[in-house]
Computed example of a mutant assay.
Amino acid sequence: MLEKEVEVGFTASFKTQITDQMVRKFADVSGDHNPIHLDDEYAKNTRFKRRIAHGMIVGALISRALVDGIGRGGIYMGQNLKFVNPVYIDDVVTVTIKITNIRREKGIAMVETNATKENGDIVVKGEAMIMMAAPGEYV
């Protein structure tokens, strides 16, 4: 069951800092050891001039926002993401979700998913489709 009743227009957000430890752990879990994420010397010679976080770290944070914002027990069915600006180590990112459509008869919702840095730069834009938890399915 949902922890709270949600309707079209419902929004939720949270803020988190992207740390070096987070990036290194994500590299180990994903196997993506691209030096742009891990090597300061390498990154100095790129267009970014310093290390950037894996874009999918923000994707994972969107998953967290869906659970924390809408409620546990739902299922992630799909996600499109557009990586607009880089996220650097130590950036603080705010992930915001907004329900844009609910098909109650199917228990499916469409959710706008965005992430921004403290300076207002959008870093990720996207949309998710989720299967909302049905009454009695909450665990």
Rank of each mutant, 00 (worst) to 15 (best):
I18L: 03
T46N: 05
L38R: 08
A115D: 14
V111G: 01
R50Q: 07
I122R: 07
K125M: 11
F14N: 12
G71W: 10
E127R: 11
S63G: 02
G78Q: 08
P135K: 13
R50K: 06
G136L: 14
G74W: 08
A128N: 03
A53D: 01
A53I: 04
T46H: 02
F83E: 02
D121G: 04
V84K: 15
K49Y: 03
E41K: 15
K117P: 05
V67Q: 04
A115G: 15
G136I: 14
G136H: 12
I18H: 02
M22H: 00
G74M: 13
Q21M: 03
D90G: 08
E118A: 15
L66C: 01
N80E: 12
I122A: 08
E118F: 10
F14M: 09
M131R: 15
A60L: 02
D20P: 08
T46V: 07
I99C: 01
G59E: 08
V84R: 15
N119W: 03
K106F: 00
N80F: 04
M131A: 05
M110D: 11
L81K: 09
S13Q: 14
D39A: 10
G59Q: 14
R50Y: 00
A134R: 12
A53H: 01
K25L: 14
K82P: 02
F14I: 05
G71S: 05
Q79P: 09
T116G: 02
V87L: 13
D40S: 05
K125Y: 04
I102S: 00
M132D: 01
E41G: 05
D32M: 08
T100C: 06
M22R: 02
D68K: 04
A60Y: 09
D68I: 05
M77E: 04
E105N: 11
K98R: 10
A134F: 06
H33Q: 07
I62C: 12
L81V: 13
L81M: 12
A133S: 11
R104Q: 10
N45S: 03
D91W: 07
